Amino acid sequence: MRPSDFDKGLQPERTELAWRRTMLSIAVGSIVAMRLLPTILGNPLWFLPGLIGLVGAVTIWRISAHRYRRVSHATITHGDRAILPDGKLTLALAIMAGGIGAFGLVVLVLVTAYAPL
C-alpha cells in the first residue's frame, strides 16, 4: 500500500464503530437483565442493575459519538497535528466494567447463599 492510499479519517471511524458495538452489547445485556432478574430472583428491585447498565450504555454512546466528531474534525482540519482523544471514554467503560464485575459478584454470592441444596 502506498502512503497516499492511507485515509486518516478511517481509523477514528473504525474506533467509533467498535465503541458502538460495545455499547450495543452492554445495552442488550442490560435489557435482558431488566427482563429476567426480577422474575428469576423474585424482587422488582433487581430491575435497577439493568437500568443502570442501560444508562451507562447510553453514556458510552454519547461520549464515543462526541469523541469521533472531535477527532474526525481535528484530523480533517489539522492533519498529522491532530489532537489526541481524552480518556473520558476509557474511564466510562472502566467504571462500567467495574460495576458489572461487582454486580456479578453480588449475584454469585446471593445465588450461592439462597440456592436450594
Rank of each mutant, 00 (worst) to 15 (best):
A65K: 10
L54P: 01
A74H: 14
W61I: 00
T75K: 15
A74W: 11
N43Y: 11
L24K: 06
I31S: 11
M34L: 09
S30M: 05
G42K: 09
L37E: 09
H66N: 13
L45P: 03
T39P: 00
R62P: 00
G50S: 03
S64W: 02
H66G: 05
L51T: 14
V58N: 02
H73N: 09
V28S: 05
G50M: 03
T59Q: 09
T59L: 13
S25F: 01
R70S: 13
L37N: 12
A33M: 14
R35C: 09
W61S: 14
G50F: 01
L48C: 10
S25G: 07
R67D: 13
I52Q: 02
V55I: 15
G50C: 03
T39S: 13
G53K: 09
V58Y: 07
L51S: 14
V55T: 06
P44K: 12
G56L: 07
V58W: 08
T39I: 12
Y68T: 00
G56R: 04
P44W: 10
G42A: 08
N43L: 07
H66C: 08
I26D: 00
N43I: 05
L51P: 13
G29I: 02
V58T: 13
R70F: 11
R67N: 10
V55P: 00
W46G: 08
L41M: 15
R67Y: 07
G56P: 05
L48W: 15
A57N: 07
M34I: 08
F47T: 15
A33E: 11
V71L: 13
F47I: 15
W46Q: 09
T75E: 13
A27Y: 04
S72F: 11
G53A: 11
P38L: 11
W61C: 03
S72Y: 14
T75H: 10
V32F: 01
S64C: 06
S25Y: 00
L41W: 05
V28D: 06
R67M: 15
T59K: 09
L48F: 15
R62M: 09
Y68H: 12
A74P: 02
L45H: 11
L36M: 10
L36Y: 12
R62T: 08
G53W: 05
L51E: 13
P44G: 07
G53Q: 08
V28H: 06
V71I: 14
Y68S: 00
I63H: 10
T59E: 05
R69T: 03
L48N: 12
I31L: 13
R70K: 13
L36F: 13
R67L: 11
V55Y: 05
L36T: 08
L54S: 08
S64M: 04
A65P: 00
I60V: 13
I26M: 03
H73Y: 10
